[in-house]
């Protein structure tokens, strides 16, 4: 097991290098730092000095890959590639345009992101499984059919409308929760209530329909027929036998998103004014803060790779037939 985990971790290194090279190419080769400076400064204020100053402030005034003016190892280290891309592996993301340290900013913003994403994830999973189980219990009836139609209809509504509609209905008409904002400690609960509910409702359509097909696939298995032949009531068959076996593909399927919960949700956080990583990313995109976007791309892929690893491990834990070599 340990050997397997280590091997998978080593396997992640070339992928991270690939991500790193890709973002480097995207941010520094497709457009030169001069182009970025020209665009950010605007057409009017573009002078060679202004561009130089902009580049120097961000450390973009070095050569891309090879510094011919330096000597020794500095020919490689005194470059944009080393200072901006290679140092990400050490957790050094540099500074944002407002001068703050990106790594520290990320550490403080992870909390609020997680405070929203984790309850949404757990509650959403629970609600979707319960709903899918209900549909399967009443399968091939009008209730099942209208439930599936409801799921498809809910999937067809943009996430933006769930948030806008939810904010309007719950906060503006019913005055049940504050429309946006965030507080520390127990104060946070009243701010978290609405985004979590909306996140659960917005996601339940797609996942419930997917879980329903998993349950239906499971229900045609031989052991289910055996259980029914023993004379077990349908309720027991469904809850004791089918649920337990169908949970394996469902849970292993969602494990991959658990680490990315740290990243938060772009839409939810920006609409509700929650100071998490999602709103940090959106602000950076709107302000065209390239350093922050670059860091978030890197962190996102690290978390995704961790998720893949957790998925493989969870297979062995959930299903003893799977052996990792």
């Amino acid at each position: 097991m340990l050997a397997y985990v280590i091997r998978r971790l080593l396997y992640a290194i070339p992928i991270l290098v690939g991500v790193n090279l890709l973002t480097f190419a995207l941010f520094f080769v497709v457009n030169t730092p001069d182009d970025m400076a020209r665009m950010q400064l605007g057409v009017k204020r573009v002078t060679p000095e202004a561009i130089q100053k902009w580049k120097a402030e961000r450390g973009y005034d070095k050569p891309l890959l090879w510094n011919a003016t330096a000597s020794g190892s500095a020919t490689l280290t005194e470059t944009i590639f080393f200072s901006k891309s290679v140092r990400m592996f050490a957790g050094d993301f540099g500074r944002a345009d407002d001068g703050r340290d990106i790594a520290r900013e990320i550490a403080t913003r992870m909390g609020p992101s997680l405070a929203i994403a984790l309850p949404t994830f757990v509650l959403g999973l629970f609600v979707a499984i319960a709903f899918a189980l209900l549909l399967v219990f009443f399968r091939a009836t009008a209730l099942d059919f209208s439930g599936v139609v409801l799921c498809v209809a809910m999937m067809s509504i943009s996430g933006l409308f769930y948030i806008i509609g939810g904010q309007w209905l719950v906060s503006k008409v019913w005055h049940l929760a504050p429309i946006s904002g965030y507080g520390g400690g127990f104060d946070a609960a009243k701010f978290l209530f609405l985004p979590v509910i909306i996140g659960v409702i917005g996601g339940v359509g797609g996942s419930a329909r997917w879980y329903r097909t998993i349950f239906l696939e499971e229900i045609t298995r031989d052991y289910v027929r055996t259980a029914r032949a023993k004379g077990l009531p349908e309720r027991v068959v469904l809850f004791r036998h089918v649920l337990r076996n169908a949970l394996i593909p469902i849970l292993t399927g969602v494990v991959v998103v658990i680490p990315t919960l740290f990243m938060g949700s772009l839409l939810t956080e920006s609409f509700f004014g929650i100071p998490g990583l999602g709103s940090y990313t959106i602000d950076a995109i709107n302000a065209q803060d390239f350093a922050v976007v670059r860091s978030m791309v890197f962190i996102g892929s690290v978390l995704y790779i961790v998720g893949l690893l957790l998925t493989d491990i969870s297979y062995t834990l959930a299903d003893p037939r799977v052996r990792l070599q």
């Binding site: 995207l26 497709v30 995109i285 791309v297 996102g300």
Partner: peptide, 24 residues
């Protein structure tokens, strides 16, 4: 490698770069 980058972020990064090209 491509799929390990979260979709929205990769799209955002690429679109930001495309904006620079169009603007310049």
């Amino acid at each position: 490698t491509l799929s390990s980058i979260p979709g929205v972020l990769l799209i955002a990064a690429a679109v930001l770069m495309m904006q620079v090209i169009i603007d310049t």
